[in-house]
Design a protein around this nucleic acid. Structure first.
Length: 412
RNA sequence: GGGGGAGUGCCCGAGUGGUUAAAGGGGGCGGACUGUAAAUCCGUUGGCGCAGCCUACGCAGGUUCGAAUCCUGCCUCCCCCA
């Protein structure tokens, strides 16, 4: 077997889509040794269960973990149940609210399930870092903390920025990189993966391992996926996320809503296509041979296929076309069951109806919607705020709000 | 422990006694346009069966014909010194 060739092949897949590999030649050396001795590398990815759902941004490092898995390495997914209690201060402008152990536990469970859509959870090691972090004594922590200097911790610009801007910075937050670093020590990690925002924490692991006389890990950073707004990084709290558990239609639509320019990031990071295929599509668009919309549609299909299967992806694509391109009513419209019991045959006031079907939170809002020309009944624009409809007449009618919200009224 | 500063609508933020339901921006919603749920432009954005009324500027009182704006107490947060 040609060792050099295998090493090259592994390195090619591993480096695909990465931002940095530190240090590159050291990783190469580790791979070579692994190939020669047939001993898999231990590759670590930590995720803090701070929120109940994973989104497409999380899938970027998970996909990289999958690559290592494909190459036969031992991947370890760390559920940061202990670290989540502190909250990673990386890129945060403020101290995170503290989660209760119950929150963490609930989130942790769904994380593993969602991660299984990307990595093979049967061969991966899935561990919780409370396993080794919780038993540490205060003395142990002080001992570990002595391996870091304040100046080094303050190198992090998110820390120094917060200090400069007179924003609070909790002492406990200083310990976060320390804990993550200790994960690497506890697992004897050879490689750790993370987003570019994790660079400091990843390097902390490398340094701590070295301080404790262990072989230091290599680190791989990956780009942060921008959210559907095309500007900020994907984050549930910014409402620009595409959740891994989003329905096919929702997922498809959200992908279609990203600005054209960022679709190439998505292609590279979460489409699952090879660099060559992506390049073909990209040059096709640049030459004007492929309509950008079709390229984006292809992307959306690829992504939905990954999480829901091809059949669902196709269905989502045609549904999208139906609603947005042809401006038709979706094939399935939610139904609102009008309760006639207490109405005694009285007519239904449109404003009241809009609130009942949840198109408006208040009657004032409903009035505004009508004034803005955003409401129609069976395709007919509602102009009169005082419109009243006979319940019998209303049966089976479709109320539309804006372009894409529909509800059908039926009798209970 | 001492001193200083701040709390305004979903968010940021202007406003220091009188058309102030409160400038401006962001976000949301609607409309136009579009290959698109993108970009851009326009409108709208406290509640109430609403040409009127009610509730609002941390909380509770007070001064005044009239307060987000002045006074008192309380709560919360931040900064500096120790």
């Amino acid at each position: 077997m040609d060792v050099e060739r295998v090493v090259n092949e592994q390195m090619e897949l591993i480096s695909m889509g990465t931002v940095e590999i530190i240090p590159l030649d050291e990783l190469r050396e580790k791979i070579r040794r692994s190939v020669e001795t047939s001993k898999p590398l231990t590759v670590k990815l930590g995720v803090d269960p701070t929120r109940p759902d994973l989104h497409l941004g999380h899938s970027v490092p998970l996909t990289k973990l999958r690559h290592f898995q494909q190459l036969g390495h031992q991947v370890v997914l760390i559920i940061g149940d202990f670290t989540a209690l502190i909250g990673d201060p990386s890129e945060q402008d403020e101290t995170r609210p503290v989660l209760t152990p119950e929150d963490v536990e609930r989130n942790a469970r769904t994380y593993v399930e969602q991660a299984s859509k990307i990595i093979d959870t049967k061969t991966a090691r899935i561990v919780r870092n409370s396993e080794w972090l919780a038993p540490l004594s205060f003395g142990d922590v002080i001992e570990l903390a002595s391996k870091f200097t304040v100046a080094r911790i303050m190198e992090r610009d998110d820390f120094s920025r917060r200090l400069k801007e007179n924003k609070p910075l909790g002492l406990h937050e200083f310990l976060y990189p320390l804990m993550q670093a200790y994960d690497s020590v506890a697992l004897d990690a050879d490689v750790e993966i993370g987003g570019t925002d994790q660079k400091f924490n990843l390097l902390a692991g490398r340094n701590l391992q070295r301080s404790l006389g262990k072989s230091p890990q290599c680190i791989i950073t990956l780009p942060l996926l921008v959210g559907t707004d095309g500007v900020q990084k994907m984050s549930k709290s910014l409402f620009n996320d595409i959740g891994l558990t989003d329905s096919p239609d929702e997922m498809f639509g959200k992908v279609m809503s990203i600005p054209d320019e960022v679709m190439w990031d998505y292609y590279a990071l979460v489409s699952g296509l090879s660099p060559r295929e992506i390049e073909d599509i990209k040059s096709g668009v640049e030459d004007g041979e492929i309509n950008p919309r079709d390229a984006k549609e292809r992307l959306a299909i690829e992504i939905v296929t990954r999480y829901h299967g091809e059949k669902e992806a196709r269905a989502a694509a045609s549904e999208f076309k139906r609603i947005f391109r042809e401006r038709k009513i979706p094939s399935e419209v939610p139904v609102y069951y009008l309760d006639l019991g207490d109405r005694q045959g009285r007519r239904v006031w449109i404003v009241d109806l809009l609130v009942r079907v949840n198109f408006a939170a208040t009657r004032s809002e409903a009035r505004r919607l009508i004034a803005e020309g955003g409401i129609s009944v069976d395709g007919e624009l509602v102009e009169d705020v005082n419109m009243e409809i006979d319940p019998e007449e209303l049966k089976g009618k479709i109320i539309q709000k804006g372009r894409r919200k529909f509800v059908k009224v039926e009798h209970k």
